[in-house]
Design a protein around this nucleic acid. Structure first.
Length: 115
DNA sequence: ATCCTGACTGTTC
DNA sequence: AGAACAGCCAGGA
């Protein structure tokens, strides 16, 4: 069939990409969407992650928005995400944002700490 | 099928 | 740098 975008589910593809983000690095929603084959699916990525039940082993905390900030809305959740990232070595600036130029995952190699 | 909501993003001011 | 806007698209009512 000419139109089989996701015979395994859209979310599964998103989760698969998130699972590949190496420790100590972050990726943006748009970046993940693109890697999952969903050009303009940034919101879908957020939607998919929101659908995740607590207890999932997916490294969803490594996902930040386009400006390097945490987009969690639930009170306290954002701080928790930041704490977990800092624990992995990701640094936040005074504005509470990640410097994507330094810690963004290149989407290819799994481990590589440039800088 | 229509409308509203949302863990988004790029452009423009 | 921050705010307003307009696209974007999957769910749920």
């Amino acid at each position: 069939m000419p139109g089989i975008p996701e015979a395994e589910g859209l979310y599964d593809r998103i989760y698969a990409v998130v699972a590949r983000i190496p420790r100590g690095r972050v990726a943006t929603y748009g970046q993940i969407a693109r890697l999952a084959g969903i050009p303009n699916g940034a919101r879908q990525v957020g939607y998919a992650l929101a659908a995740l039940h607590s207890g999932s082993r997916l490294p969803w905390h490594r996902v930040v928005n386009a400006v390097g900030a945490v987009s969690l809305r639930a009170p306290g959740a954002a701080e928790q995400q930041r704490f977990q990232l800092e624990k992995e070595g990701v640094r936040f600036n005074a504005a509470g944002r990640v410097d994507l130029r330094l810690d963004r995952w290149d989407g290819m190699s799994r481990k590589q700490r440039a800088r």
